[in-house]
């Protein structure tokens, strides 16, 4: 497959390799080295690293600045951008700012509602939604124009991604929604954390039935559980998350000190199984505040070493 941007992630996917991405959450302060330290640890085990954009609506160091730090250390960043906090002027402006530092990947999201975070009294923006942001980046890149119609002097060259949650309700519209994001111009998808493998496989089958797996690169999202408590929390408290009872029981069934190990095991087993699913083109390994475990997950899943592509 030919590539449209200088993105290393795009090249790896186009060459037919299973891609591996991970993500780092920026700190709640101005210590930029928190990000570079996390990235230093995992950089040889992944092809690109997402930097979250004030995830769960908790104010943090901005994604763009953190991505620039990664870029300067030679790591490929994926700029996450939510439409919750910026109108179309700010979104386009930040995209250009990112492009000026040669950031080549963007993940277009609407973002969690501000009620979850540290500023529930704040206004949200949602001038655009995630689908319209996908359209915006593609328009800026492919037409070389601002939404307002003026020409951009040196348009951004970004590989455009979005999230998909096969587990949110109603299930019947989850594949049509993927189709809608593809129609908007999305080029890669990172999914919500997968614990219910049967449901994910059904979603992928429905996507394949419409030929969608050939129109977009789908990276399956996985997150290891650190403890049984985390599994229960994810099951009960995180919106849009589907953690089957048997997974929670498996975590609770081992002694506390063995639970982290069990969590990694479940994660690796999931990757092994998902590798066989037609249409899965890679993995997005989200080890939340447990980045050091990305190494062994990638290694044990047979995804190491990463391909060398310039």
């Amino acid at each position: 497959m030919s590539t449209k941007t200088p993105s290393r992630l795009e090249k790896i996917l186009a060459a037919g390799h299973m891609a591996v991405t991970s993500e780092c959450g920026p700190p709640r302060g101005s210590k930029g080295e928190v990000i570079t330290k996390k990235a230093e640890m995992i950089k040889d085990y992944v092809d690109a690293i997402n930097i979250t954009d004030n995830q769960t609506s908790v104010t943090r160091l901005c994604s763009l600045a953190a991505c620039i730090r990664l870029k300067l250390m030679g790591v490929e960043p994926i700029l996450q951008m939510v439409t919750r906090d910026r109108n179309r002027i700010a979104l386009q402006s930040d995209i250009l700012g990112a492009a000026s530092f040669d950031l080549y990947n963007i993940l277009c999201l609407s973002g969690d509602h501000q009620q979850f975070g540290d500023s529930p009294q704040g206004q949200n923006v949602f001038d655009l939604d995630s689908i319209q942001l996908i359209q915006t980046v593609r328009y800026m890149r492919d037409e070389g124009k601002f939404l307002g119609g003026d020409d951009i002097d040196q348009p951004p060259k970004m590989f455009v991604g979005a999230a998909a949650n096969p587990f949110a309700d109603p299930f019947e519209i989850r594949v049509p929604r993927l189709a809608k994001k593809i129609a908007a111009g999305v080029e890669f998808i990172q999914t919500q954390c997968i614990y219910n493998l049967e449901k994910f496989e059904l979603w992928m089958k429905m996507a394949r039935d419409r030929g969608l797996h050939e129109k977009v690169y789908i990276l399956a999202g996985v997150t290891p559980f650190k403890s049984a408590g985390m599994a229960k929390y994810m099951k009960n408290r995180v919106p849009g998350m589907d953690v089957p009872d048997e997974v929670v029981n498996r975590m609770s069934g081992v002694p506390k000190e063995k639970q982290p190990e069990e969590g990694i095991k479940i994660c690796v087993e999931s990757i092994q199984r998902l590798k066989e699913v037609e249409g899965v083109k890679g993995f997005h390994v989200m080890a939340i505040e447990w980045e050091e475990k990305v190494l062994e997950i990638v290694e044990q899943s047979g995804l190491y070493p990463r391909p060398k592509i310039e």
Binding site: R84, N124, D129, S130, N165, A168, I173, G240
Partner: peptide, 10 residues
């Protein structure tokens, strides 16, 4: 969220 292309993943 006032989304025009909803629902979101939540």
């Amino acid at each position: 969220k006032g989304l025009l292309n909803g629902p979101c993943g939540g």
